[in-house]
């Protein structure tokens, strides 16, 4: 019995390490795969993700989405998020590479009909910024992640107008100038 104990201990030690490692990796692998499937980075894709596709689990068929997979290694990201006219519910949210939702604003938390969101990584210079009605600067926890816009389809008759409004939102890389730490 005493000779078996070290082997049993080794098996449980390996099991514990693999268990913790896979728990850590699962969300990061799922997120990386989703980002790859959602299209070109630092570009807004209206209609993605699609709840009727099989790319992202448990999407809502009652919402329209637009997404911007981002990669801050190419520079800071500027998102211009436009709130659809008379949106029943709209929000812009940000996710890091571990799937955590580190930012969200909805239509009732925005003064006008659009908001500019500048996302940088720690140590990255803040880009030169012009005028914007409302601007939020975020420091992202990871280089890669996702900006996701949602709006409720309150009535099928409004779906085309809501989809058109989502297409007005954009995202793209901007050159950094000053340091922010």
């Amino acid at each position: 019995m005493s000779t078996r104990l070290p082997w049993i201990a080794l098996a449980f030690l390996v099991a514990a390490l693999v268990h913790m490692g896979t728990l850590y990796l699962v969300p990061r692998i799922v997120m990386a795969r989703a980002l790859d499937e959602l299209g070109a980075v630092n570009t807004m894709h209206a209609g993605q993700p699609n709840p009727f596709s099989r790319s992202v689990a448990r999407m809502s068929p009652d919402l329209l989405y637009a997404s911007c997979p981002y990669d801050l290694s190419k520079g800071p990201l500027r998102v211009t998020a436009v709130v659809p006219y008379r949106a029943y519910y709209w929000s812009v949210s940000a996710y890091d590479s571990a799937t955590d939702n580190f930012f969200v604003r909805n239509d009732q938390q925005i003064a006008g009909n659009s908001v500019e969101i500048v996302i940088i990584k720690r140590g990255q210079g803040l880009p030169a910024l012009g005028n914007a009605p409302e601007r939020i600067v975020l420091i992202a926890p990871s280089d890669r992640g996702l900006i996701l816009l949602r709006t409720v389809i309150d009535d099928e008759k409004h779906e085309a107008a809501l989809a058109a409004a989502l297409r007005q939102s954009s995202c793209g890389t901007v050159a950094s100038k000053t340091g922010l730490r």
Partner: peptide
């Protein structure tokens, strides 16, 4: 939540990605 535990985060990634 960013404060979620590893079990919640992994299960959520598989069964409900992009939760708010």
């Amino acid at each position: 939540s960013p404060q979620s535990d590893p079990y919640t985060r992994a299960a959520e990634a598989l069964h409900g990605l992009f939760a708010l």
